[in-house]
């Protein structure tokens, strides 16, 4: 019997997770509780966070910070990328600046933000935006540059206004790149938000992780980490669905799995 490729992929993923969990469980028999707590304890803590509103609120707070950061970086990145795409001379001025930003570690931005700004939310938004801005800009710029010259000429032959050109040609052209950028930056943002919250916040998953470290509670640390992983997986799946719907014009073989 031949399995559906998607079902087979899913079963393979389940199998590898099962092996990881089994190895962890075995380790919990031989190592102290604070190093390897049993799997069931981690699961219980994970579920408890999900059903306990004050704790779930912390997860949602982090999710909101990720969204705000990504949305801000996406908007700013697009505002930078489209003029650079239209006027290539701008690139020589803006790209070195973005490359420089890209080289600064997230932790350095946390320190800078703490020194520069007062409000916690503003600090975190700043860190999220500044760390994901270069990647968004470059990805949107790449998509813009991949715009077909043929389609541009064809559209121009109807003499569209700048807004109509943007709507009928530029947006659909850069859309696949935007969706990919969101998928990639989501993972980056989830890592950065934890660092930002760990050092500069009084709530959210990063702050809770700091508390678990102070309590030496491995089950709690893992349970909070899993919240973030689950959040990233769920949002990525939502993006894949949106992508498959928006890019439904593509042949089935070219769609995201």
């Amino acid at each position: 019997m031949t399995l559906n490729p998607r079902l087979r992929q899913f079963l393979q993923a389940v199998a590898s997770m099962f092996v990881l969990l089994a190895a962890w469980q075995i380790a919990s028999f031989f190592f102290p509780y604070y190093l390897f707590p049993p799997v069931q304890d981690i699961v219980v803590r994970t579920v408890r966070i999900l059903v306990n509103w004050p704790e779930l609120k912390q997860v949602l707070e982090t999710a909101m910070r990720i969204f705000i950061g990504l949305a801000g970086a996406f908007l700013l990145g697009s505002l930078l990328a489209i003029p650079i795409g239209r006027y290539p001379k701008l690139e020589s001025y803006i790209t070195p600046f973005l490359v420089f930003l890209q080289g600064i570690p997230a932790l350095s931005w946390v320190i800078i933000a703490i020194i520069w700004f007062h409000g916690t939310e503003f600090r975190i938004a700043f860190i999220m935006i500044i760390t994901t801005l270069p990647a968004f800009t470059f990805q949107v710029l790449d998509s813009y540059r991949s715009m077909s010259k043929d389609l541009f000429e064809m559209t121009m032959s109807f003499r569209p206004s700048a807004w109509t050109l943007f709507r009928v040609l530029i947006v659909p052209t850069i859309l696949p790149g935007i969706l990919t950028a969101w998928k990639i930056n989501l993972g980056n943002a989830a890592r950065v938000v934890v660092v930002a919250e760990l050092v500069g916040a009084t709530g959210g998953v990063g702050y809770e992780l700091l508390r678990q470290q102070q309590l030496f509670d491995m089950a709690g640390a893992l349970a909070w980490t899993i919240q973030l992983v689950l959040f990233v997986l769920v949002v990525q799946q939502v993006i894949v669905w949106v992508e498959n719907w928006l890019l439904r014009y593509r042949p089935v073989s070219e769609r995201a799995a």
Binding site: L151, E153, M154, T155, F158, T164, V168, L247, Y249
Partner: peptide
Amino acid sequence: MGIVFQNDRLMPWRTALDNVVLGLEI
């Protein structure tokens, strides 16, 4: 002016109908 190019230059994200509608939409 209407232009017919060497290659069809259809927008891949538009159906046949929407491709024909394009000029009118503009």
